[in-house]
């Protein structure tokens, strides 16, 4: 995994406005104007956020026409979902071990001596 890409992705995801932009783009392409509407922010401010997201590989922008619609790039999100999956994996393995430990703790002495 490319460390620079990872840094850029995490930095991009650390901002609530940018996460909200991604959430909106999950429903489909949108122009800068459409993205600016719900956020009470100036177009330059939104554009700045979009640049960060674009650099992080989380979105791409159309090259044609003045509106340059933004689109979610799911691959960029993989870094975040990978972490979340990894975190889930740790807890799954941890809880598998806890289940086994709880089984051991609850073994009654009478079953230990039972001939098989």
């Amino acid at each position: 995994m490319d460390d620079g890409q990872l840094d850029a992705t995490f930095a991009a995801l650390s901002d609530a406005t940018r996460r909200a932009i991604l959430a909106k783009l999950a429903h489909g392409e949108a122009t800068v104007n459409e993205l600016a509407q719900p956020f009470d922010m100036s177009l330059p401010a939104i554009s700045k956020h979009l640049k960060v997201l674009e650099r992080a590989g989380l979105i791409s922008r159309g090259r044609n026409g003045q509106f340059r619609p933004c689109r979610l790039e799911a691959d960029g999100l993989d870094v975040a979902t990978d972490w979340i999956e990894h975190n889930r994996q740790i807890w799954t393995e941890r809880f598998d071990k806890l289940s086994a430990h709880l089984r051991d703790l609850q073994k009654t002495p009478s079953t230990k001596g039972t001939p098989s």
Binding site: A23, A26, L72, A80, T81, I84, N87
Partner: peptide, 12 residues
């Protein structure tokens, strides 16, 4: 399944 939904990245 892993979801690629930005809404889900805040909480687990």
């Amino acid at each position: 399944t892993a979801t690629t939904n930005a809404d889900d990245l805040d909480e687990v």
